[in-house]
Amino acid sequence: MKIAVCLRRTPDTTAKIVIAAGGTSIDETGVKFVPNPYDEYAIEAAIALKEKAGAGETVVVALGADSVQETLRTALAMGIDRAVHLQGNASADGLENARALADHVRGGGYDLVLFGKLAVDDYGQQTGAMVAELLELPCATAITMLEIADGRATVEREVEGGVEQATCALPAVFTCDKGLNNPRLPSLKGIMAARKKPFDIAPVTVAAGAVTVASLVLPPERAAGRIVGEGAAAVPALMQLLVSDAKVI
């Protein structure tokens, strides 16, 4: 079982967002960066599948500036075998990033290529499915269950009002959602071992593509609300507001 995990570096989800000068990106000063939380489900799935198979290789791949190397080492500390840094600036156009990743994964002999379902910075939600399309591989997005048997995968994914079930042959591309597994923490020994694992750096040039970020702004603050009252006695007043003022009931 040879598995690639494509990884992103994102601000910690608790980070306060401040817009940088220029108005198209966030100010990274003092922001803590972490592996994209959804990618951790992909990493865990890769490690667990290899452990179960008893053999194989897990590889983590990331496209971006040098800062992503620390994120790659976190994946190595969790238990991934090898890292590849596709060194270059990612595009605002997800399709161009998908091309760079697909070019690297193609011919790598992978049984599985895993992604997080989205990155918690740009919420692009497209790279995984695009890589699958470019590689002409089966794909399911936002999976919450994955079973591999006899060269086939069975997956589940949440859709509105239910859980969709699907199967496909390997090799395949999946993007991973919360619920798939419970990602492990890197152990202290893992952190020390990460330094000694193979780490390749391959420069890439990503085309600009057809997308430009025009602006990034903070959402308008909600108008300050009000306390209607205390306890069950306040329910009639609340109902009055919901029915007559807000007209939502």
């Binding site: 080492r73 976190t74 500390a77 923490l185 202290l188 952190i191 990460a194 330094r195």
Partner: peptide
């Protein structure tokens, strides 16, 4: 980087 990683893993 390792020291920070250790700190973060124990914190988590």
């Amino acid at each position: 980087e390792e020291e920070r990683a250790v700190r973060d893993t124990v914190r988590a």
